[in-house]
Amino acid sequence: MRGPPMRELTLSKAVNEAIAEEMRRDPSIILMGEDVAEAGTPFKVLSGLVEEFGPERILDTPISEPGFTGIAVGAAMTGMRPIVDLMFGDFLFLVMDQLCNQAAKTHYMSGGKLSVPMVLRTNMGATRRSAAQHSQSLHALVAHIPGLKVAMPSSAYEAKGLLKSAIRDADPVVIFEDKLMYQDKAPVPEEEYLLPLGKAEILREGRDISFVATSSMRQVAEAAAARLAEDGVSAEIIDPRTIVPLDEETILASVRKTGRVIVIDEGHQSFGVTAEIAARIAEKAFYHLDAPVGRMGAMDVPIPFSPALEDLTVPTPERLVERAMASLRGEPVHGA
């Protein structure tokens, strides 16, 4: 797949490339959001696009998130393929009606006659010292709404391949990029490639325990797996890549093999992605479990500003190693 030798790109550049390639291919694609043109967004993800595609296709909007999201819905329904840039994932709360009542339901409510082929790109991730309104990981909120697809790239490679698929998809897709990974590099092929929505990837094969890790939690899982390997424990890592649709089969197959699993996701733990995946495992692979399904999410607190506090709220490799060892020792976590 990833043939050697391969150049390395930052996640930020991979996103930029995906958009540029798709916009060259399809003139119906437009991009809109706050400071997306000359400014190229605060994270400089979109730098250079307006120079190539002009202000007619890279639209700087007023600070009106519901407004430009709604306009994107209408444009998508009538023949465009808009990419909406939502500067921070926290602003999802502002656009909920347009995203969840309009974009998500239009295809269904119209009996399949209308479609909303749009992409909403936004971000997630704490530990950037941005406090409670610029640090949330709200993908579970969106994943709860039928009609939306939700992608969570775990590196530059996934970011590019998933975004290109999302742009070509006939449904509204929300992509969460972890803003702490924008400068992280990963091998990205020169040649064009797409990663399908709804297909998980086994990032590391293992025997003793499975980690299902979304987005940047992949890095946590990889660090933990490396440490466990020193003790002879072999951990398998699954990156779901998209949580809607969710590649249940790959996850279940891994759990059936190892008998143990911990789900790691940066959303708040309660009522979130870890709960959903854990429940599906319990429903569909129960008789293969040799330990309770473990899960690690962000603490159920608003993200605090102080670095001393913020770092406590997210899963870490150390805590994951502890949880994995407890699982391997057969320590009953609950209900014993």
Partner: peptide, 9 residues
């Protein structure tokens, strides 16, 4: 008796 589902199976 406490046993994991896999062990029981």
């Amino acid at each position: 008796i406490l046993a994991t589902p896999k062990a029981r199976r």
